[in-house]
Nucleic acid binder design. Structure first.
Lengths: 188, 188
DNA sequence: TCAAATAACATACAAATTGTATGATAAATA
DNA sequence: TATTTATCATACAATTTGTATGTTATTTGA
């Protein structure tokens, strides 16, 4: 068993994460200085350097945490066999997750760090479902390479979800799922 | 008629663009310094500042140029009425364009500036085809909001194209178009 | 509860990079 | 060819980063 992380480290990282997101909602990541983060977080700059080399490492660490939290949400929640049902269920959980962490996701998205999100989602889908999909009859019959399929739907879905997220007033979750339902064919 | 731009400016911007892409293929955009660009481009740093405030402005300017070049490629080349045929034709030109500028696109993509590409493509699709699609019967009947449709397909397609671009060995252009053909339904 | 370990802090400073200013030189325009 | 102006060379101030050191405060684990 791993030694438990020192409480102080947990606290420091949490406040750094929170502050990073807060600032990313105010200005572009590119323009955020390490000293901005530390000032806002009330963390000594030397403490920052004790944990991270630069702000990119901080962002990466945060994204990794976020990914784990999403995987945890998906775990034990998605069990359907039928491909479409499976995707819809997966998506429903994904939307809930994104909705709950709305501030975080929209901050990343608005910073044009879209690439992160797509990589992220693809990684999650691959970990969560690639094994499952591999043996799925629908998929096998489709004659489409699995990697192409995953990239297509991951790219499309994350894009729809993100745009929905940044202008949520327009449709509610059920409507959104309804649209996606129409976008994904019964047999892939 | 607009006054023609001074030749020196054209040259300077071109070498800055070329150098930027060259460097983005070597390291992440985040790590590229203005002085790196100028050294490599053999441009005086003060000349850089005469044109741009920072490297982000340079990238934006470049992306804008790229967009114009793609729009030009599409112009006068896409005329079909049927939605699917239209999309396939549009995509075929897009792939040629991307293939031709392979170095540029993969550099942007590899720098996790995916967001740029999606925005970019959506913008192009909107400019090129939104009017056309708006009056299209297939679309009108689909009961899906046009913005959702565009975001879904734009996100999915750019993602597939980019992944194809970065590992071109795997499939050739015809195979890729074949896959996409299967991903896009006859009636949307 | 207390001693040991260590994370966070305060501070200082060197190094890197940016941003600006100025006059001289070279190239493009008309 | 004369005029305009973009580029260059250089210098320098300002910002930001990165590192180092000793002190203080908090957490851990016995």
């Amino acid at each position: 068993m791993n030694k438990k992380t020192d409480l102080r480290i947990v606290k420091t990282k949490k406040v750094l994460f929170d502050t990073l997101i807060k600032l990313m909602r105010q200005k572009n990541f590119d323009k955020i200085k390490i000293s901005d983060i530390c000032d806002e977080a009330l963390i000594n700059r030397s403490t920052f350097y004790a944990h991270y080399e630069d702000k990119y490492e901080l962002l990466d660490d945060f994204i990794e945490d976020l990914k784990m939290s999403l995987l945890k949400d998906l775990e034990d929640n998605v069990h359907n066999i039928n491909t479409k049902e499976y995707i819809m269920k997966l998506l429903s959980i994904l939307i809930d997750h994104i909705d709950e962490k709305r501030d975080i996701y929209s901050a990343i998205f608005l910073n044009n760090r879209n690439g992160f999100l797509v990589d992220f989602l693809i990684d999650v889908i691959e970990r969560e479902s690639l094994e499952r999909l591999k043996n799925n009859n629908d998929i096998v019959k489709s004659e489409l390479p699995l990697d192409i399929l995953v990239k297509f739907y991951a790219g499309g879905l994350i894009n729809v979800c993100m745009s929905w997220l940044t202008r949520k007033e327009k449709y509610n979750k059920e409507e959104l799922l309804g649209f996606i339902d129409k976008l994904i064919p019964e047999k892939i």
